[in-house]
């Protein structure tokens, strides 16, 4: 039998650690806990977790610092816990190698969904020739895009953008990450490009562009391609 994956929880609040432990164990994970940043770094080395849940507001070390130090040698997916109005902190964490974030207060359902996505991305990439997500089908070999069984023509940039979202399906991408990938390092401040192309992509690929289900805006942070049910 495969042992359940271990999740390291780094948070100074005992109540938060407790409800995380109870909910994660009920969902079939094993948990290890750390109450400080230093302890978290040590635990990350000792227990070799499959995932890390890291609170950014730790008393001893800045959560961002903890993340950077763990990232020096570990690629374990890290989910950061942040608070409302701390968009810059979330962006900094994502740019420093966090895989995703949830905003306190959050529901367990939200957290588990993020973990499932992180889990998917932690697996070695399957070289599938086709990508399916809800009403979207992309033939990656022939660069053909279908939405709701209709063939859709995309510009080269739109297709590149779509590919980026496909590679990171379910994960949040910061504005800077997208701009750097698609338009290059000199364009990381040019957010207007991004918003125009996102509007175009939504118009072409969403079932109802005025209620996007596929390309979600992460307010003040970036965008995320939602994982939809098969239609």
């Amino acid at each position: 039998m495969i042992p359940p994956p271990t999740i390291l929880i780094i948070d100074d609040e005992i109540q938060i650690r407790r409800f995380l432990r109870v909910s994660l164990e009920a969902a079939g994970y094993r948990t290890v806990e750390a109450a400080t940043g230093e302890e978290g770094i040590t635990q990350a080395a000792m227990s070799r977790p499959a995932f890390i849940i890291l609170d950014l507001g730790l008393p001893d070390l800045n959560g961002l610092e903890v993340l950077k130090r763990i990232r020096e040698w570990s690629r374990a997916p890290a989910l950061v816990l942040s608070v409302q109005d701390a968009e810059q902190e979330k962006i900094a964490a994502l740019d420093a190698g966090a895989d995703d974030y949830v905003t306190k207060p959050f529901s367990v359902g939200e957290l588990l969904a993020r973990l499932r996505v992180a889990n998917r991305h932690a697996q070695p990439a399957q070289d599938a020739p086709e990508f399916r997500n809800g009403h979207l089908r992309v033939d990656l070999v022939h660069r053909l895009v279908q939405a709701n069984e209709q063939s859709i023509k995309l510009t080269a940039t739109e297709y590149d953008l779509l590919l980026l979202f496909i590679r990171h399906a379910g994960k949040v991408l910061t504005h800077r990450q997208i701009l750097r990938e698609i338009w290059g390092p000199h364009a990381v401040e040019e957010t207007q490009y991004l918003h125009i192309y996102m509007a175009q992509l939504r118009k072409k690929l969403e079932l109802n562009p005025s209620q996007p289900q596929l390309f979600l805006t992460e307010s003040g942070v970036g965008y995320r391609m939602a994982l939809l049910e098969e239609s």
């Binding site: 810059q88 504005h175 918003h195 996102m198 509007a199 005025s210 209620q211 307010s219 003040g220």
Partner: peptide, 17 residues
């Protein structure tokens, strides 16, 4: 203010959702 070029319709989607 963290001013950026934004899509007003997108703002409404986010608020509504």
């Amino acid at each position: 203010l963290n001013l950026e070029w934004c899509d007003a319709a997108d703002l409404i989607h986010v608020v509504l959702s």
